[in-house]
Design a protein around this nucleic acid. Sequence first.
DNA 1: CCGTTATTTACCGTAACAGGAAAAAGTCGG
DNA 2: CCGACTTTTTCCTGTTACGGTAAATAACGG
Lengths: 195, 195
Amino acid sequence: MALGDAILACLTERPMTGYELAKTFDSSIGFFWKADHQQIYRELSKLRDRGHIQGREVVQSGKPNKLVYTLTPEGRTALRHWAARPSTPASTKDDLLVRLHALDSIDIEPLRTDLMARLEHHRDRHANYERILKKRFPDGTAEGRLDLGNLLLLRLGARHEQMVADFCEEALEALSAMSGKATVVPLEDGKREKG
Amino acid sequence: MALGDAILACLTERPMTGYELAKTFDSSIGFFWKADHQQIYRELSKLRDRGHIQGREVVQSGKPNKLVYTLTPEGRTALRHWAARPSTPASTKDDLLVRLHALDSIDIEPLRTDLMARLEHHRDRHANYERILKKRFPDGTAEGRLDLGNLLLLRLGARHEQMVADFCEEALEALSAMSGKATVVPLEDGKREKG
DNA sequence: CCGTTATTTACCGTAACAGGAAAAAGTCGG
DNA sequence: CCGACTTTTTCCTGTTACGGTAAATAACGG
């Protein structure tokens, strides 16, 4: 019960169809929340059953008819109640961290390439955040409450990506410094283990 | 299929029982990965069925017998193969961020208390990381590969917590600055909505 | 005609999360 | 001695999420 609330949160901005929501979850809110269209459509059905949203069919020519979903007053209330409950700090659950935890039992080469890919990935995202920040908040201040929320969000996102990117760089450097005194030679396919 | 690998990663350090693993997931690796004992026991059964770990019963007097699990060569290979696959960047999925995204549709007061709680939480965790860092790596350098992994991990954790704590502070300040020109008065129970 | 875009829906499975309960044997406080 | 707690494993029932495959429908571009 959290994806549903994320969808409600999106619908506060404007009514949307499942298709639009799927795209939203691919850009703005999707920066920190992934969900594919199936998840979204399934969740939308549930929300409708609960009476939190209301679908209005819009007949289209040339395209399949679309279902525009709007928040109902019950939905707004539900969202506010959800938002009034203490939030649960999410755990990271990043594969990379698990790998670092078992660093001496895995092969370094794939790890390096992975770190490099991740470095690029996080740099891209950082640049993206900065780009949006400059476009939407050129002077770094927000007017309304909605704007403030989004500004804070973008700033956090930017900083996070920056930090992770820096971390990847640092990890790569540390691995390079260490690889001089390598303890285990990478093997082909686990024919030998060092135990 | 990720919790299983996290467990394998833990078992590279030393053989452990499910009970010990549960406690480990409550401290070291649990800093970025949450799992309760039931999840762990279930996963252990699966891993045993797959032949990735091997259980050895240790008869105890005074306490129930325990099952010490050891990595099998197959398990080590599986871990290495898993670690050689590109990692998937995890998405944040933090309730707080969703709330910020819908900032103008929710009540600020509970959000403030939540932010304050989170601030404390992240500060605590940061202090904890720093404490462990000072204890395990007083001079900030690592010897072996295992140590390097853990050092990097701790540093990332510390920085992350620091950053989120700063963010909470900033958000609180911004909310205070904004609350002067409040647009919506907080309501009791959604009897009125501003739409 | 084929592929793409727009739009929704259906089914399959597994993985993860949440919580409640029960065993069994000891230890410790009152 | 009773009750509470620790240690250790297991079973239960749910919901939520994740992942893939695929099918309808209908225009538009090549």
